[in-house]
Design a protein around this nucleic acid. Sequence first.
DNA 1: TGGGAAATAT
DNA 2: AATATTTCCC
Length: 392
Amino acid sequence: MLAASPLRSSNGGDGRDHVDVVGFSGDALLEDINFDDLFMGFDDGDILPDLEVDFAEFSTSGEEDSTGANLSGSGEQEVPVVQQEVQEVISTVNTTDKEQDVKPSFTPESSSVTCKSNRKSSSSSPTKGSQGKRKVKVDWTPELHRRFVQAVEQLGVDKAVPSRILEIMGIDCLTRHNIASHLQKYRSHRKHLMVREAEAASWSQRRQMYAGGGGGGVPRRPEMSPWLAPMMGFPPAPPVQLFRPLHVWGHPTVDQPPIVPMWPRHLVPSPATSPAPQPLLHPPPDPSFWHPHFPRNAMTQGTPCLYPPQPMRFAATPAVSGLYRPLNVVPPASKQPGSQTHPSKESIDAAIGDVLTKPWLPLPLGLKPPSVDSVLVELQKQGVSKVPPTCG
DNA sequence: TGGGAAATAT
DNA sequence: AATATTTCCC
């Protein structure tokens, strides 16, 4: 069962057809692989209603090389151009039912995956620039991709070859080249993911070395501790310093437990350990998640300090790069011992705006700092306000 | 027949 | 910008 309609390129170049291959399922989630990472934007909205249009009903139009394409056969062939009315039917269905509850039961075995035209296809003249080949562009919908993954895993990632995948998937309108292309990308993404996971694992391993396996996160050799290492230039009479981790490329840690150890009490930095600031490095991309998260927890709880207004320096540290950016938050002047001296939300906001202009500095030993939440918790436990000598 | 890179298209 | 296809070479 297929549905397709022509897509003519607007530039009159090769005038490719664009065919979506769609199916639908009640559970559009891809569980085998985290394709949220790989293919952003997949959601139920991408799963289109069943467009069971029998390709046999459509005559091919115009182009010689695409005529006679046999979509019910196996192997690769050109997807035929179909009549305009198909496209109309399809877009009608799309616009009406897309958000509706059109999720018929679906089982992988019995699923029908259909090919439909891409709606981007404009109704331009079929005669344009269509000599030679007319390829279709396959839209790898979640369902289609799920089947792809299924096939790949069935064969084994290493042994999966396009022709076999195609066979297993049983999607008529796909060609071996479609599969090969997708497979290439799939592997590439996969490799990427594995690298990232390896990094995470390696980090996690190192974390354990310093976390002491539940002993409160105290490194075995404090004097060598990476945590202790100079992270930033300390202010002359510094208040509490925290690392503020930035998960720039990953997902915010909202749903995840912290993967980093608590900040050990005796490792809270002190002025004596502060080095000179490092030179500017390449800024990592997209620190955009700053705003949503930072002010919420940063300084709203505890950490009273009696210093006069003075920058509080946080480290905004991307998880991967080993860089951080200092964040200076100026707390209000303390009135009397014991009074609250949190920075105001405004000053935090101002600092956040400002931090983006700061240079990125290397994080010693390439280690990540603890998560801000864990630090805050730990600092609270430890009565951190006493860390600077005059703060308690 | 398939992998992979690069160019190209959308 | 992201993703898919094509082309070329091995």
